Simulated scan of single mutants.
Amino acid sequence: MDKLSEQDIEKKLLRYPDWEYFDNAIHAEFEFENFRDCFSAMSRIAFECEALNHHPNWSNVYNVLTISLSTHDADGVTNKDFKLAEAIENIVEPVE
C-alpha cells in the first residue's frame, strides 16, 4: 500500500468533513449521547477493523471517541485509512 501525498490526502478529506490531517495521520472526534452509544459504535467499528485487517489508534472518554488512522507499514496515510474512515462514518453517522 502506497503512502498518499499530502495533496491527495487533503483532496480526499473533502468527502470527510469530520476528519483532519496532521501528525502523519487522519483524525476525527465523535461525540455521542452517552457512554453506551459510544461503546456500541466502537464495537461495530471493531468488526469493520477486523474485516479490513486495519486497526485505529483510538481512545474513549465517556461519550467521546477520538480516532487516528495511519498505515504503519507505509509510514503514513494510505487508501486503506480512507476505506476504514468511510466505514466508521457509515457507523457513526448512517446515511438514511
Rank of each mutant, 00 (worst) to 15 (best):
D8Q: 15
D8S: 15
D8M: 07
E10P: 02
E10H: 08
E10S: 12
K11S: 10
K11P: 01
K12V: 08
L13A: 09
Y16L: 15
Y16P: 11
P17D: 09
P17N: 05
D18I: 04
E20Y: 08
E20K: 15
Y21N: 12
Y21M: 06
F22S: 14
D23E: 09
D23N: 14
D23Q: 11
N24A: 09
A25V: 02
I26D: 08
H27W: 08
H27P: 01
A28L: 03
E29Q: 13
E29I: 09
F30E: 11
F30Y: 14
F30H: 06
F32I: 07
E33G: 03
N34E: 09
F35A: 13
R36P: 01
C38A: 15
F39M: 15
F39Q: 12
S40D: 13
S40L: 15
S40Q: 10
S40N: 14
A41W: 00
A41R: 00
A41I: 00
A41T: 01
M42N: 01
M42E: 00
M42A: 05
S43A: 10
S43L: 12
S43G: 15
S43E: 12
I45R: 08
I45G: 00
A46N: 02
A46D: 05
F47I: 15
E48W: 12
E48P: 03
C49K: 02
C49S: 14
E50G: 01
E50L: 05
E50R: 08
L52N: 02
L52F: 12
L52Y: 13
H54P: 05
H54G: 01
H54S: 00
H55P: 00
P56G: 00
N57K: 06
W58Y: 10
W58N: 10
W58P: 06
S59N: 07
N60T: 14
N60R: 06
N60S: 08
Y62R: 02
Y62K: 02
Y62Q: 06
L65R: 06
T66Y: 03
T66V: 10
T66C: 04
I67P: 00
I67S: 03
S68A: 15
S68W: 01
L69T: 03
L69Q: 13
L69N: 14
L69V: 00
L69K: 07
T71R: 03
T71M: 07
H72R: 06
H72V: 08
D73W: 01
D73K: 09
D73L: 03
D75N: 15
D75G: 11
D75C: 09
G76E: 07
G76C: 06
G76A: 05
V77F: 04
T78H: 08
N79I: 06
K80V: 11
K80W: 02
D81K: 03
D81W: 00
D81A: 09
F82P: 05
F82K: 12
K83A: 10
I88A: 10
I88R: 11
E89Q: 15
E89C: 12
E89R: 11
N90E: 14
N90R: 14
V92R: 04
V92A: 07
V92G: 02
V92H: 07
V92K: 07
V92Q: 06
P94Y: 02
P94Q: 13
P94S: 04
V95L: 15
